[in-house]
Amino acid sequence: MEKKNVVSIEDRIPTLKQERKKKANRRLIFYLSIFFFLISIIVYLQSPLSDIRTIKVTGNAFVAEEQVLDQVDMAEGDNIWTVDKEAVSQAAASNPAIKKAEVHRRLPWTIELNITEVNHVGFVSRDDNVYPILGNGKVLTEHVQSDSMNGNAPLLAGFSEEAYLKDMAEQLSSLPESIRSLISEIHWKPNDGNKHKILLYMNDGNLVDGTIRHFADKMSVYPSIVSQLEPDKKGIVHIGVGAYFEEFGSAGEDSGNTDGTTNEN
């Protein structure tokens, strides 16, 4: 008959005591960790460690950072947790050049203000300076970053009446950027019969004769017209009731007319 190993209760007591001690130590460490973590949070919230040290403005191409910061009720030294994100966002978006603003806390002490601007559709020249114009017709004349002035949008020239400038900006806003980027300059050429008349200088060397009315719809045919021309052939693309091409130096408007239509007055 096999002899079984029997462990007496006296032998098991030291082992049980050790296990209980280990559990008690782990529980103590856990509670102490929570305690010090909470203390750390309280110290952080009540000390200058939670004060804003950096405010980053991102996404702004035309509106200067200083202008954005002047609009919002927030500054370095404020407690990062007292910042009203919604109020700051609304204050920044009150600028007509800003479409929306998002506020993010970047711990431990940074606030990031991400700006989405209203699309600019061109530039206008005033008092020997060039300023961007937005799709809503607003001309940005103050606090504009000079490094944002690039040639990716047309120059609007001769628009001495604000109403026509606004209409032109709205039409450009509806025009696909791929076509808008083809335009170098837009000149307002009003006459007695048509106050909406415009002349466009294109980056490819052609001219476009048209009107502000329904410009976005009519200008959409431009790429298809020039794609049918020989590379060395330049001239005037008329976009009116119909659309046709007139080569420079041709005898008259009827030469090169592809559909028998005449230009809109």
Rank of each mutant, 00 (worst) to 15 (best):
N257E: 01
F215N: 00
F123N: 06
L134W: 01
A91Q: 15
F215T: 00
F62C: 12
F245N: 05
A64Q: 11
D70G: 00
V221D: 05
D167C: 01
D73R: 09
A93F: 00
S94Y: 00
N150M: 02
G235L: 12
T54G: 00
A243K: 07
L32F: 15
L172I: 05
I236P: 11
D128W: 04
F123W: 15
S224N: 09
K85E: 13
Q46C: 01
G240S: 10
D232T: 14
S224K: 10
D11A: 07
M219N: 02
N150Y: 04
K100M: 12
I183F: 05
E246S: 13
D78G: 05
N79T: 08
R126F: 12
H120R: 13
K138G: 00
R105N: 13
N150I: 11
D70Q: 15
L28M: 11
D127P: 02
A91R: 05
K85C: 01
K166L: 12
N152T: 14
L175W: 03
T262E: 03
D51R: 03
S94N: 12
D73V: 02
A157Y: 07
N60Q: 09
L134C: 07
L134H: 10
V68E: 09
S220G: 00
A101Q: 04
D70R: 15
N194V: 04
